[in-house]
Amino acid sequence: MTDDPETRTLRVHLIAGGPTPATTPVINRPYAVPGLIEDAPIFRVRVLLSMAPKSVAVASPNSTATLDGKTVTAVVSDIHDVVVIRY
């Protein structure tokens, strides 16, 4: 998360990752390549703020974000997205 006080903007970066398979031996884990992500993941995030923000948006057209009082809820349908919160 980054904060730009001059423009009063918070940016929350959401990044999906594939964990190393649990069956990889411990001695070889630093050299293991993570599994490929074949389909874009879908995940949800909820951000509770200390005050109600003015607006919320997401960078990707495949994702959505809603604002309910002090709570921002986003559904991300991509490997990486940014939730932009203006306060």
Rank of each mutant, 00 (worst) to 15 (best):
T64N: 11
V75E: 03
F43S: 04
P30D: 07
R86V: 11
A65W: 01
D68S: 15
T64P: 12
A65K: 05
A74R: 03
V83L: 11
G69T: 08
I42Q: 15
V33W: 01
V72E: 10
V12K: 04
T9Q: 06
T9D: 05
H80T: 11
R29D: 02
P5K: 12
K54A: 14
T9R: 02
D78N: 15
K70R: 13
I15W: 00
V58T: 03
D78A: 11
R29W: 06
P34S: 04
L14G: 05
T71C: 06
T23L: 06
T9S: 03
G35W: 07
A59K: 13
T9C: 01
P5F: 04
V58D: 00
V12S: 00
D39A: 14
K70L: 01
I27L: 12
V72I: 11
E38Y: 15
F43T: 09
V45C: 10
T20E: 10
D81R: 05
S63N: 04
L48K: 13
G69P: 06
V33N: 08
S55Y: 04
G17L: 02
R29N: 04
G69N: 09
M1T: 07
N62R: 13
L14Q: 03
P41Q: 01
L67R: 04
T9K: 02
A22R: 06
A22F: 04
D4M: 02
I85T: 02
P30H: 06
A65T: 12
H13I: 02
P5C: 03
L49D: 01
D3I: 12
E6H: 05
A32F: 01
P41H: 07
V84N: 10
H13M: 08
A16F: 06
L49V: 10
V26R: 03
T9L: 04
A59D: 09
P61V: 11
N28R: 13
P25W: 10
R86S: 08
A74F: 01
D3W: 15
V33S: 14
P41S: 02
V45I: 11
A16K: 00
P34N: 02
T7W: 09
A74T: 14
V58I: 05
P19R: 05
P21M: 10
V12P: 07
P21K: 06
I85V: 02
V56Y: 13
V76K: 00
T66A: 05
K54E: 15
S77G: 05
K54P: 15
A65L: 03
R11T: 14
I42V: 15
K70F: 07
V84P: 10
A40F: 14
L36K: 12
I27V: 05
P53E: 05
A65Q: 04
A74M: 11
N62C: 15
T73G: 07
D4Q: 06
R86I: 12
G35E: 11
A65C: 13
H80L: 07
E38G: 14
R29P: 04
A57N: 13
A22N: 12
V47T: 09
P25Q: 11
P19Y: 01
P30G: 05
T64I: 06
F43Q: 06
N62Y: 15
V45K: 06
G18S: 07
H80Q: 14
R29H: 03
